[in-house]
């Protein structure tokens, strides 16, 4: 979800308007915390160009979904550069072609190690095992913090969902800014086409089965101009979040 990227001509005209109009700033807003307001520790630290406030390295510590069931530990591949001017283009057909394209070996089966690199065209891209403190994985911040291209990009993500028992009739619920597709144990489960924005439970899969033990959850998110991110969780047959899972990023 984003403002459409205008033509250069419009941009130049608009810049001229803004420059000519001018701004007469007088005083800066006073700093300091408010009384009785919630604080947001993430955004207090986000003025440095780094992934640090938005992610921390994945560890071997036990990790369950958060209180709402969102999966916050993922292996993320640095963004594949694309050329996308508008997010209107993300039709189902477009996404299938984009995600069926083989960008790197074993694209639909690999469980990479943290730091492992792949070659995609002229790009050498690394996998990062990361955890997000928020419900969503902020892919724009991932790319921006690593000084990578952050608009017109395609991200791959994979994680391992460990289930203590077989769980039938669960649904994979996903939201993404940008189009996305999600596969559980190699089968396509959810597709989010069109001009998407970050909305939890934007789409849900048909009923699925989580096997006892390891389940491989894989996703791809594509975006033109926009703050790419995604959020994923499992819902039980009553629509409640599934939380008795453990999430790992290595086999």
């Amino acid at each position: 979800m984003i403002r459409f990227t205008p033509t250069i001509g419009l941009m130049v005209i608009a810049m001229i308007i803004l420059l000519v109009s001018g701004v007469h700033a007088q005083t800066a807003p006073p700093p300091g915390p408010p009384r009785g307001m919630r604080r947001d520790s993430i955004t207090e630290l986000d003025t440095n160009r780094s992934i640090a406030p938005f992610f921390k390295p994945s560890t071997a510590a036990k990790k369950t979904p958060d209180a709402d069931g969102f999966i916050q530990r993922w292996l993320l591949l640095e963004p594949i550069n694309k050329s996308i001017r508008s997010n209107i283009v993300f039709t189902g057909d477009y996404l299938k072609k984009a995600f069926d394209t083989i960008y790197f070996p074993d694209q639909f089966t690999v469980i990479p190690k943290d730091g492992e690199k792949v070659k995609v065209g002229e790009q050498e891209l690394a996998w990062h095992a990361l955890e997000s403190p928020t419900f969503n994985m902020k892919l724009f911040r991932f790319a921006y913090g690593l000084h990578k291209q952050n608009y017109s990009v395609l991200f791959w993500a994979v994680t391992i969902v460990n289930s203590p028992r077989e769980m039938k009739n669960v649904r994979l619920a996903a939201g993404s800014n940008g189009g996305s597709m999600w596969w559980l144990n190699g089968k396509q489960a959810v597709i989010l086409d069109g001009d998407r924005r970050m909305v939890m439970d934007d789409a849900a899969s048909a009923r699925l089965t989580l096997h006892k033990g390891k389940n491989i959850l894989r996703g791809a998110v594509i975006n033109g101009p926009g703050l790419s991110d995604f959020c994923v969780r499992f819902l039980d047959e009553n629509g409640a979040p599934v939380k008795d899972l453990t999430i790992t990023t290595n086999q």
């Binding site: 979800m1 807003p29 300091g32 009384r35 947001d40």
Partner: peptide, 27 residues
């Protein structure tokens, strides 16, 4: 705010239109 991150709320002084002293933006 806009699509680029959070929508924020701040408090202004209705007499001056200035930011209330000590006020911090809230997402």
């Amino acid at each position: 705010g806009t699509y680029f991150g959070y929508i924020r709320l701040v408090e202004l002084d209705p007499k001056t239109g200035k930011r209330v002293a000590g006020n911090k933006a809230l997402n």
